[in-house]
Design a binder for these strands. Structure first.
Length: 711
DNA sequence: CATCACGCTGTTTTT
DNA sequence: CAGCGTGATG
């Protein structure tokens, strides 16, 4: 039973226009908090109400979660059939299509997807083939190499061009980079692997080269909507054009000042090129903000007014009142953590719930110190962004077994699982894989590798496990349970903190239970994984504080928002990185963060002395202090450590001096800002100490530089 | 193959 | 600092 919606009552004129225009191309330029999501939700509802088949509506979003939430909302407020609308990410759609048409691209339909960690691993394995001259200047590390290759393919420029523009320090390695690019391409083809970038590129290629596929998809998706269009790149724009070129029922929604994904080749100019591709486009601007108070908007407008590129709009609200955002120099990082904790507690005392508050930051590690203090003070939180559940070693190792069966050419996974066998390392694993490939031995015959000795009898066990797993293709849950029996002893051997890791792996059992085929299960996990272990917590609805990277906070809002430590200088050699474009992206990042706040916005930064933790010139690509410096008092309130609201409430005197090793003994309980609670296992001469952390295993720490504390 | 000492060097965000 | 590569040793 569907509900009637009175659109004119719930939407403003611009939103209404966007919702009611259901034919032809539409570009919606929507400022932060202007009801962009609301507009998309109602438009989905409207289309279904008009009798459009839900399955023929395609909603492309940035994360799978965003799509699901929108469809759920549409279903709740109108017709439950909205849940059948096709929603997902570009990568998700691309993968589904490519799977069906893999052979047209010269791939087998058993190809597997590599995540970033896999990509880096392959690059790493290829490096010896580059034959680098010994003792030459430093070659970029593998994560940088992956960044360069990925960005070059996303921008569709040659590696040289990209390096000239953004990696001047590595220009001398251009020949090697080119060689690496080719090796990497060949490797992927040879092993039936695609990385994230390939999904998008091959998808476009398939559409361009194959009229039949293009027509079929265009017919299947008669109405297309794209959210966060400013974060798409030129290739994705081509895909949109191919899909909608025939019927032209395409709506893209975006905000040029929220473009913060240039590292993926995204460019907000895509938005302005849209009218060139669809000249009959209707352009709708949403400028009224429904989220924040006017003082918050004045602040964000003032920040963007200084941008070197001019953006399309100025936000206003009809909400009156509200307080001016505050900027606080907390001098040091630990003081910043104390300040936020104290402020949070005060806010709770005023009757607010923890779920109304969020702390946002640039990089996942920026919250380490705060997390420590929150834990000390017993304030519960969930964190989004940064650490990826799927990328932790134990999860990857575990799933590699399943991947190796599904795609027996997947050398990355085979390497992983073979190296887990006792006395098989880098060399032997490669020899075994090569043998399997040349003899065509099926996966469960690894135990019969002729080179084996008595020492690697573990191969026999692996063989048996693989053999039973192969008979569980239609029973993912059974396969996971079976593999668990084999893998748990390995895990126990390998990690000191196996109970936590075991628990995490066990969470895969119910997830696998939702799939009919093993392959579907592992594909989904790689491509659209739970964003963090917090996501898997069934009690998400509990009243907790949110910590999040700005990137992960996109599209969300909270009454109170704290922003901490936004790119102050920390890296001594950073002068090389001063880059006007990067500064502009940092500015937009601050804009995105600030516009998440509905009522109150507080920005903290740990000043220069707190930021440059071991001296040297500060990195100068921007940061809270540089963006707010000189803003007028009407727009921002400046507070320092001298202001009463900060100093008076300090809960205990700060002692920032490091713990001397003589005070620590094996067995002492300690706490570290990054790694959390742990126990001292060993003292090492000088100022080093080995700690066994509850969540991160064994780490060797240099005291004097880390704030390791006795707990 | 596994472990350890030593030297070097510097961003980060995510599908 | 801490992660990573290198080269030497068990």
């Amino acid at each position: 039973m569907s509900n009637r919606i009175d659109y004119e009552k719930v939407l403003n004129p611009a939103q209404l226009d966007a919702v009611m225009t259901t034919q032809g191309p539409v570009l919606v330029i929507a400022g932060a908090g202007s009801g962009k999501t609301r507009t998309l939700v109602y438009r989905v509802a409207r289309l279904v109400e008009l009798g459009v088949e839900p399955e023929s509506v395609l909603l492309l979003t940035f994360t799978r979660r965003a799509a699901q939430e929108m469809l759920e909302r549409a279903a709740t407020l109108s017709d439950p059939r909205c849940r059948f609308v096709s929603g997902g990410t570009f990568h998700g759609i691309a993968f589904r299509v490519l799977r069906r048409h893999a052979e047209k691209l010269g791939f087998s339909n058993s190809f597997t997807i590599m995540d970033r960690a896999d990509m880096e691993e392959v690059i790493h394995a290829l490096l010896p083939e580059l034959q680098m001259p010994k003792g030459s200047a430093r070659f970029p590390k593998r994560s940088t190499l992956a960044n360069i290759l990925s960005k070059a393919s996303n921008l569709e420029v040659t590696v040289e061009t990209l390096m000239e523009e953004e990696y001047g320090q590595f220009l001398e390695f251009c020949p090697q980079m080119n060689r690496l690019l080719h090796l990497y391409r060949d490797y992927k083809r040879g092993h039936q692997l695609m990385d994230y970038d390939d999904l998008i590129i091959y998808f476009r290629g398939l559409l361009a080269a194959n009229e039949e596929v293009r027509r079929e998809l265009s017919q299947q998706y008669g109405h297309i909507m794209v959210d966060e269009y400013q974060d798409t790149n030129a290739i994705q724009a081509d895909i949109v054009h191919q899909l909608a070129g025939a019927h032209r029922n395409i709506m893209v929604v975006g905000d040029d000042s929220q473009s913060i994904y240039s590292f993926r080749g995204a460019n907000y100019r895509n938005m302005f090129e849209f009218p060139e591709r669809f000249p009959e486009v209707k352009i709708i601007k949403l400028e009224e903000n429904y989220r924040s108070t006017q003082p918050i908007l004045d602040f964000t407008n003032a920040i963007m007014a200084r941008a070197s590129e001019k953006y399309t709009k100025c936000l206003y609200t009809r909400k009156s009142g509200g307080e001016t955002p505050a900027v606080i120099d907390t001098r040091t990082e630990p003081e910043q953590a104390l300040f936020v904790c104290r402020h949070v507690k005060e806010t709770l005392a005023q009757g607010r719930a923890l779920r109304d508050l969020a702390v946002l930051f640039r990089a996942a590690y920026h919250s380490f110190e705060l997390e420590l203090e929150l834990t000390r003070q017993g304030i519960p939180y969930v964190k989004y962004g940064g650490f990826k559940f799927m990328e932790s070693a134990h999860i990857k190792d575990f799933l590699a077994h399943l991947r190796a069966i599904v795609n027996r050419d997947d050398a990355v996974s085979w390497g992983r699982i073979l190296r887990l066998v006792k006395n098989v390392g880098h060399g032997k694993s490669q020899a075994i894989f090569k043998w399997m490939k040349t003899t065509g031995a099926p996966p469960d015959q690894v135990g019969h590798w002729p080179g084996q000795t008595q020492k690697d009898s573990g191969l026999k066990t692996l063989s048996q496990v693989i053999s039973s797993l192969m008979s569980h293709e239609t029973d993912p849950k059974g396969a996971v349970e079976l593999l668990l029996e084999y893998y748990l002893p390995v895990l126990r051997d390998q990690f000191d903190d196996y109970p936590r890791r075991q628990r995490e792996i066990e969470q895969l059992i119910p997830m696998a239970g939702r799939y009919r085929r093993l392959r579907g299960f592992i594909d989904d996990l790689v491509l659209e994984p739970p964003t963090s272990s917090a996501d898997m917590d069934p009690d998400r609805k509990t009243d907790v504080l949110t910590l999040s990277t700005v990137h992960s906070a996109k599209g969300l809002e909270w009454p109170f928002v704290y922003i901490i430590w936004l790119m102050e200088g920390r890296f001594p050699q950073a002068r090389a990185y001063v880059n006007p474009q990067a500064v502009e992206e940092e500015r937009r990042l601050l804009y995105v963060a600030s516009t998440r706040a509905k009522e109150r916005l507080i920005l903290c930064y740990p000043g220069r002395e707190g930021a440059a933790s071991w001296g040297g010139p500060a990195w100068n690509n921007g940061g809270v202090s540089s963006f707010v410096a000189g803003l007028p008092r009407e727009v921002v309130r400046y507070e320092t450590e001298a202001s009463p609201s900060f100093t008076s409430g300090r809960e205990r005197p700060l002692d920032l001096s490091p713990t001397p090793p003589s005070e620590l003994r094996p067995g002492d309980r300690v706490s570290h800002p990054a790694f959390g609670p742990g126990v001292v296992s060993k003292l090492i001469e000088g100022n080093k100490v080995e700690v066994l952390f509850r969540n991160f295993g064994r780490k060797l720490l240099h005291l004097g530089y880390t704030s390791l504390e006795k707990a």
